[in-house]
Simulated assay, not measured.
Amino acid sequence: MTTYFQGKTVIITGASAGVGAETAKAFAKMNANLVLLARGQKALDEISKELSISTSVLTIAMDVSSSSDCQKMLVSAEKKFGAIHYLINNAGYHKRGEVENNSPEQLAKMVDVNLRAPIELTALILPYIRRSIAKGGVGGIVNVGSLAGRTPLQGAATYSATKSGLRAFSYALADELKGSGISVGVVSPGPINTGFIMSEIDEVEDIVFSQPMSSPQQVTNAIISVAKGEKIEISLPNSSGWLTTISYLFPTLRRLLRPLLYEKGRKAKERYRNKA
Rank of each mutant, 00 (worst) to 15 (best):
S76N: 14
M1R: 06
S146H: 00
L58K: 12
K95H: 13
S210C: 08
A77T: 12
N101P: 01
N193W: 04
I119E: 00
P152G: 05
C70W: 06
P259F: 06
L44I: 03
V144M: 10
I201D: 07
E100Q: 13
A108T: 04
G145P: 01
N143T: 00
V187A: 04
S67H: 15
G149C: 09
A276V: 07
A26N: 06
A17Y: 10
V10S: 02
S164M: 04
N90S: 03
H94K: 10
E50N: 13
I60T: 08
S56P: 01
I246S: 09
G20W: 05
N193M: 13
A26G: 02
G40K: 14
L173K: 02
V111N: 02
A268Y: 01
A21G: 05
T245N: 12
G185W: 01
I207S: 05
G137H: 09
L87V: 09
T220V: 09
E233H: 07
T55K: 04
K269H: 12
T158G: 07
G179P: 04
E270K: 04
A168L: 09
P259Y: 15
K8I: 14
L124M: 07
D112P: 00
L44Y: 05
S52C: 04
E205D: 15
T220C: 14
G241M: 04
S68R: 12
S214H: 08
Q217M: 12
S180C: 14
P191V: 15
S160A: 10
H85V: 08
I84C: 08
K49R: 15
I12L: 15
Y128I: 07
E46G: 12
R116V: 12
F5P: 01
K49G: 08
R150I: 03
G181A: 09
R96G: 03
Q217H: 12
S67F: 14
S56M: 13
A38F: 04
E50F: 06
Y248M: 14
G190L: 11
V142P: 00
Q106M: 05
T194N: 09
G140H: 09
I197Q: 11
I11N: 01
N33R: 06
G165K: 09
L243S: 14
L253W: 14
L58S: 13
G14N: 04
G155H: 01
S103Q: 01
S215A: 06
I197P: 03
G265W: 03
Q211M: 13
I129H: 00
R150E: 10
K275Q: 12
Y159N: 06
P152S: 07
R130F: 10
E50Q: 15
V64L: 10
T2S: 11
R167C: 08
F81H: 05
D206P: 03
N221E: 15
N274M: 07
R258C: 05
L44T: 02
E230P: 01
S239H: 11
P237G: 03
L107S: 03
E205Y: 10
G185I: 08
Q106N: 00
A28F: 08
S183A: 14
S239G: 09
G190S: 06
M213V: 15
R167L: 07
A15Q: 03
T244R: 04
F5W: 13
G265A: 14
V184H: 02
I192A: 08
T13L: 04
M30E: 07
P259N: 08
S239Q: 15
F209Y: 12
T151D: 02
K49V: 15
L166F: 02
L87M: 08
E270V: 11
A15E: 06
P212T: 10
L243W: 05
N193E: 12
F250P: 02
K29R: 13
L256D: 01
